[in-house]
Design a protein around this nucleic acid. Structure first.
Lengths: 150, 150
DNA sequence: ACGGATTTATCGCAATTGCAACGAAACCGC
DNA sequence: GCGGTTTCGTTGCAATTGCGATAAATCCGT
């Protein structure tokens, strides 16, 4: 009597699994940008996010960034440390609440962002163009997905 | 005479930047799953991907997985090492080409996948349900985006 | 069938990440 | 206004990641 074959596993196609598809699409899209920013400006993705938020919001604390940029506070803290060492941002204490720090763009960081932000806008425009009508669909899907999290 | 203000930076909204939105959506979606898999089975995302591919394709080499699962070969190699140490997969040499290795599910890994794959299917079904009509839009958008890469 | 080029998988090392713990400051109920 | 609690930012440590280098095996042109 021969040994029984095990029951077959359920069929499952990784390529149809939405979390996988999202991860691959996001990695591809991000890596493409990350390479550009690294080559041109020497900054990483977390650093880029902090800079963009500072460019948009002026003076903010680590907590503010954490709350609005989908980063953990230690990521913000370490990104800010590197950016400070690179002379791109400045840091001082908030005199009203000395637990808080006030981060802001240094002139050097401001100059960098003056060059970087138009590049980012161009990239966005090109992506919209490349995807054509699928872009609106992607955005609608992302909107629904992101709304669940706030 | 006062110092001139610097020219204002272009307005740029991070929340409307598609690569950022994709990254946040992917992280949120993946982390949710990763926590479950880690808590229930003690495996990480790279390990999960290797297991799924083995469950789907039977006996494969590192190269096969690398080519089809959007992982670098060293990620596959290290995930396979951990899975072997956990007794979930088996590894032997390919006698036709001794550079290649043959990875396959061990009985223990097979049992795990018999439990895990239905959970993944249920998760997918729930995601489709939660997103409603936006799900089809998301998929159409991802399809266009992923097609660019192959 | 020989020798350089290529492919395959792994690993050393440095950088990054994630978690938990920490110290300092502010808050709050009494 | 005192003392426990909470918030804020940083950091130590361990695990993971990414790059480049490596060893072993095969391929391929001659």
């Amino acid at each position: 009597m021969t040994k029984e074959d095990p029951p077959p596993l359920p069929a499952f196609d990784l390529f149809g699994f939405t979390p996988y598809r999202l991860a691959v699409a996001a990695k591809h899209t991000s890596d493409e940008l990350a390479r550009q920013y690294r080559a041109r400006f020497g900054i990483s993705v977390p650093e880029w996010r902090v800079l963009v938020h500072l460019a948009h919001s002026g003076e903010v604390s680590v907590r503010d960034i954490e709350a609005r940029v989908a980063m953990e506070k230690y990521e913000v803290s370490r990104a800010a440390k590197r950016l400070r060492e690179a002379g791109l941002i400045e840091r001082r204490e908030n005199p009203q609440d000395r637990r808080l720090i006030i981060l802001s763009l240094a002139p050097k960081g401001r100059d960098m962002m003056a060059e970087l932000l138009p590049m980012a806008k161009a990239h966005q425009a090109e992506l919209e163009h490349r995807l054509g009508p699928a872009f609106q669909q992607l955005e609608a899907g992302l909107e629904a997905l992101l709304k669940e999290t706030q």
